[in-house]
Design a protein around this nucleic acid. Structure first.
Length: 515
RNA sequence: GCCCCCAUCGUCUAGGGGCCUAGGACAUAGCCCUCUCAAGGCUAAGACAGGGGUUCGAAUCCCCUUGGGGGCACCA
């Protein structure tokens, strides 16, 4: 039988980084063994669900290249793949369990349960709920259900040990005496997570349940439900959670605003986001996939990073192309311990993938950032694209993210924004204005205006004047680009062109120092 | 409080009794290269949580302690 895994996100409006990591492991296992990866939307929480909240999840998966064999937009033989459309199935299953004597009605009110819980706490005893009607006959149970709106609870068998063999945790066991009878169905007929999940996993023939470790404690209840249903248990694998950067705390789905640190905010602003826009979007922070997409990370880098977070291929591989990851993925090389998300390492990986990307694709990837920054217009003409390509090439390894085009290349498209300190230090220093003017004259007569010729002219000039080429280069850089960092100066000059270069030098020289 | 899980450099990890004076990677620091930055090269610093066993031998197996995490819902 082929492997079937699933990922069941709630449509919350964003794709969480920890969730994707879990999804990736599910996906990898099926790609490795030729099974099916199912995307099932857990949208039973009707109040909070907006249909458009699904889009970021779908788009995130698409962007990452994690395709699903069954689920939204692609369908499949075990649909529907929205839990909100499967409500009758849960109801049916719950009533079937009542008929088999595995479940029973519960009339307890919230207040009663709360009081019970408090009492256990006061008595320092573990809170284990057993319904009053736990032992009524099947007939009586059905009668009550027909007559009143009651919740349905599973009758947890007493005095037993539930044992699973988790692919990552090994053997784990629980005493059923410590497991309260869980509610399967609310009085209004809506299923609870633990029940709906099992019913769906059974119906969808899921063979491997690979999920976050926080679900480990749900597992005994679910195992009991499988048993009551008379179904075979799937394989379980509980992957360690992903922790916040520099922390031992789980990377939470709640309160993600705290990840919008001043640095993060600065990064987003640098690529054209306003504070209002940042605050208005709840999926724009480092805990979501959308954030990395927005900043121009390569999806393959993110996949590689996430794949290596809690899993390793061997003792040294870090850059693992997807094909290789698929070929070598296995659950037993997933680590037991939680892993902290490390933005630095992801950034490094992003650079590694970027430099492997063909120039043409780098050029294409950079364009949207230039458009957003209003440096070029939408759908640039061929000449502009050619120029962008030159700039991207000149940026070389500096370009790790597509958005890096802005810090490294914005000055090619607009007037320099002069850094006053740099201007002072590199251009308006004793003797330099004269030298610059003299070299500008040389440039005026330089033909062709190309990298090798420019370099030769400068070296020649420096030798003639007896100045260090470094000093001249710094002055040229600051006067033509406004800043102290950027691609090689001769690349900059050649791309800017003679006219712009002369104009910028003149302008920089004309800018009088403050005092 | 109860249940469950986890524990190697700051971080991601290798390690499944001797190959470990613990390897790799990111980050950090220094040097080299160099027109800046980036990249690259070299080097440095940096860990088996603690204590007991088992064994000729333990990072590796067992127990305890400590620490961290998750759960104990008519949330998912």
């Amino acid at each position: 039988m082929s492997i079937r895994t699933r990922f069941a996100p709630s449509p919350t409006g964003f794709l969480h980084i920890g969730g994707v990591r879990t999804a990736l492991f599910n996906w990898l296992l099926t790609r490795r063994h030729g099974g099916q990866f199912v995307l099932r939307i857990d949208d039973t929480d009707i109040e909070r669900n907006r249909p458009e909240a699904l889009q970021p999840i779908i788009e995130g998966f698409r962007w990452l290249g994690l395709n699903w064999d069954e689920g939204p937009e692609v369908g499949g033989p075990y649909g529907p793949y929205f839990q909100s459309q499967r409500l009758d199935l849960y109801k049916e299953a719950a009533y079937a369990l009542v008929a088999k004597g595995h479940a029973y009605p519960c009339l307890a009110t919230k207040e009663e349960l709360e009081a019970e819980r408090k009492a256990s706490e006061a008595a320092k005893k573990p809170y284990v709920h057993r319904g009053k009607l736990r032992d009524v006959s099947v007939e009586e149970a059905q009668e009550i259900l027909a007559r009143e709106s009651a919740a349905i609870r599973l009758r947890v068998p007493l005095g037993r040990t539930v044992r699973i063999r988790d692919h990552i945790r090994g053997e784990v066991e629980w005493q059923t005496d410590l497991i309260g009878d869980p509610v399967l169905l609310r009085p209004d007929g809506r299923a609870l997570y633990n029940f709906a999940t099992v019913v769906d996993d059974v119906a969808m023939r899921i063979t491997h349940v690979i999920r976050a470790a926080e679900h480990l404690s749900n597992t005994p209840v679910q195992v009991l439900i499988y048993e009551a249903l008379g179904e075979k248990l799937p394989e379980f694998a509980h992957v360690p959670v992903v922790n916040e950067p520099g922390s031992k705390k789980k990377l939470s789905k709640r309160d993600m605003k705290k990840f919008v640190t001043p640095e993060v905010r600065a990064k987003l602003r640098a690529i054209g986001w306003t504070d209002e826009e940042i605050d208005a979007k709840d999926d724009l922070n480092p805990a979501t996939v959308a954030y990395y997409r927005e900043l121009g990370y390569l999806p393959q880098a993110l996949v590689n990073y996430l794949g290596r977070l809690g899993w390793s291929m061997d003792d040294r591989s870090e850059i693992i192309p997807l094909e290789q990851m698929i070929a070598s993925f296995s659950l037993d090389r997933v680590n037991d311990a939680p892993a902290s998300f490390d933005p630095d390492k992801l950034y490094w990986l992003a650079g590694e993938y970027m430099r492997q990307l063909p120039l043409e694709e780098r050029t294409r990837g950079v364009i949207p950032y230039l458009v957003r920054a209003r440096l070029i217009r939408e759908s640039p003409d061929q000449a502009t694209v050619d120029r962008i390509r030159q700039i991207v090439e000149a940026c070389g390894d500096r370009l790790k993210l597509f958005s890096d085009i802005l810090p490294y290349g914005a000055f090619f498209f607009r007037d320099p924004e002069y850094d006053p300190a740099a201007l002072q230090k590199r251009v308006h220093k004793p003797g330099m204005p004269e030298l610059l003017s003299a070299f500008a004259e040389v440039l005026r007569h330089t033909e062709p205006f190309t990298v090798p010729v420019l370099e030769e002219k400068l070296r020649e000039f420096c030798e003639r004047k007896g100045v260090k080429s470094g000093d001249m280069i710094h002055a040229l850089r600051v006067s033509t680009t406004g800043v102290t960092v950027g691609p090689g100066i001769f690349d900059c000059l050649a791309i800017l062109g003679k006219e712009a270069v002369l104009e910028r030098i003149a302008k920089a020289l004309a800018m009088k120092p403050e005092n």
